[in-house]
Simulated scan of single mutants.
Amino acid sequence: MSTQITTELVPIQGALAQVAFRRSARARKISLRIDPAQGGVVITLPMRASRRAGLALLQTHEAWVAERLASLPSALPFLPGAAVPVRGVPHEICPVPAGRGGAWIEAQRILVTGQPEFLGRRVADCLKRLARQELTAQAAAKAKLAGLSPKCVRIKDTRTRWGSCAPDGTLAFCWRLICAPDFVQDYVVGHEVAHLRHMNHGRHFWALTDELTPHRTAASAWLERNGPALLRIG
Rank of each mutant, 00 (worst) to 15 (best):
R26G: 07
P11Y: 08
Q13P: 02
L76P: 01
R87Y: 13
R33H: 03
R48T: 14
V123I: 09
R122M: 07
L111F: 06
A98D: 14
A82K: 07
G101N: 05
R33C: 02
S74I: 05
Q115S: 13
A56K: 10
F118M: 12
G88H: 01
R22V: 10
V10I: 15
R100P: 00
W104P: 04
V96H: 09
A70V: 03
A82H: 07
Q13W: 03
V10L: 07
F21Q: 06
S31D: 10
G81I: 06
V10H: 05
G14C: 06
H61K: 15
L9R: 14
E67Y: 07
A53Q: 14
S24R: 03
A75I: 02
G14R: 01
A124V: 09
S71V: 04
L76G: 06
G99P: 01
R22T: 10
S74Q: 15
V10C: 06
T44V: 00
A27W: 10
A82D: 03
A63S: 15
A124I: 11
S24C: 08
E106F: 03
R51W: 00
A70K: 12
E106D: 13
T113V: 03
I110F: 05
M47H: 13
L16S: 14
P46C: 10
M47A: 11
P97N: 12
G120W: 02
R28L: 09
G114E: 10
Q59E: 15
P85Q: 11
V89E: 14
T60G: 01
A37L: 06
L76W: 01
W64M: 10
A83E: 15
L45F: 03
R28E: 15
R109G: 12
C94H: 12
S50I: 01
R52N: 09
L72D: 06
Q108S: 08
W64N: 04
A20Y: 00
V86W: 08
R48W: 05
F78D: 05
T7H: 11
V86A: 04
T6C: 00
G102N: 03
A66I: 08
F78P: 02
R122T: 07
I110K: 10
A75G: 06
L58I: 00
G99R: 05
L9H: 12
T44F: 01
T44W: 02
A20M: 09
E67G: 14
A20N: 13
G102F: 06
A17V: 07
T113P: 02
H61D: 15
P11A: 07
E62T: 09
R121I: 09
E117L: 11
P90D: 06
E117R: 10
P90W: 13
A98E: 15
L79Q: 11
I105D: 03
P77V: 00
